[in-house]
Simulated scan of single mutants.
Amino acid sequence: MSEGNTQSTPDLENKLQGYIFGTACADALGRPVEHLTLEQIKEKYGEDGILEIPPESPWTDDTQLMLVLARGLLNGAELELPGLMDKIAEELVLWLDEPDLGAGATTRGAALNLKDGIPWSRSGINSKTCGSLMRVGILGFIFSNDPEKLIKAASISGRITHSHPTADAASVAGAYAVKLALDGMVPEDMFQPLLRVTEGISEEFTEALKGSYELAHSNLSDEEALQKIGQGWYADETFALAYFCILRYPDDYKKAVQTAVNITGDSDSVGSVAGGILGARLGIKAVPSSWVESLKEKEKLEGMIKLLLEKHFQVSGMN
């Protein structure tokens, strides 16, 4: 199953930059408030919460692990899936030597399993936390013209660390939502395709996705609705919270991300998932330039753009 590429290189580069920087900026905005309650956030930053990224802001393990996955793709996206998973597993082992930016116990434990020689098909831990979801969006870019491989790669690469069905469904949704965003689909129209590609994987995820959609169309305030969805530590809630924010603010990257991080819960992960999807749809100009300039190591992200574009076209040319 393949689809021809219909986007020009400049347009695709603009959207890739939107995804990469949209993810990292949202991650950096959420980082200082991740372990605070909403009440504590308001007490520290004012009634509207945290709204801007201070200079020299680092990102967290969310962006770090997206880059780990990106390197695996650069080394093997053109391979059949078992070969690609070998490359991703190698990068996860190498990641253990990188600075600890707050990675969860599940991802670290699975990477240690890989380091100990356990094959990637059995390295995953039965956890439904959001560590696999938060990194998979880049698959939506690389395989945007091959939805069948995209869905399989999102599922299998997610299960290298998180083998729980709820995490599996969220990984598929997270990657596929970026593909839909790159295609120009508005968040409202993503609902049915996301239900379709995750059908039968996890009833828990399906219910969370439906609940998010219904709450976004309710009369509840953002704050009231987000509290009903959850705190985002588990993958179904993480995606549901992010999807709610982009449904409410489909054309406003900044407002969607600000809404996503000002919660009691996993602010940086919810923010980065929402920011990556909207950044991919709206392009780099939607991401505040002041936020991009405030990222501590933005040159690392910039250095990936050309390489990922080349890999995307290499993979697309093989379809």
Rank of each mutant, 00 (worst) to 15 (best):
N5K: 08
S8C: 12
L16W: 04
Q17I: 00
G18Q: 06
G18F: 04
I20L: 15
I20K: 08
T23D: 01
L29A: 13
L29E: 11
L29M: 09
G30L: 01
P32N: 10
E39Y: 07
K42C: 12
E43G: 15
K44A: 15
K44E: 15
E47C: 05
E47Q: 15
D48R: 15
G49R: 08
P58L: 12
D62H: 02
D62I: 07
M66R: 01
A70W: 07
R71L: 08
G72V: 05
L74Q: 12
N75A: 14
E78A: 13
E78F: 12
M85S: 08
K87L: 12
E90G: 04
L92E: 00
L92C: 04
L96V: 12
D100I: 09
A103N: 01
R108D: 03
I118M: 04
W120A: 03
S123C: 06
I125Y: 02
S127R: 01
K128F: 06
T129L: 03
L133Y: 03
I138C: 07
I138F: 05
L139A: 07
G140A: 09
N145P: 00
D146W: 06
L150P: 00
K152H: 10
P165N: 01
T166A: 07
T166D: 10
A167D: 02
D168R: 01
A169H: 02
A169F: 01
V172I: 13
G184Q: 09
L195K: 09
R196N: 12
R196H: 08
S202P: 11
F205K: 02
A216Q: 05
E224T: 13
A225N: 03
I229H: 04
Q231R: 15
T238D: 01
D251H: 12
K255Y: 00
A256Y: 02
G265H: 08
D266N: 09
G271W: 08
S272C: 15
G275A: 12
I277K: 03
G283D: 09
A286G: 14
K298T: 14
E299D: 15
E302T: 11
E302H: 04
G303N: 15
K306H: 14
H312I: 04
V315N: 10
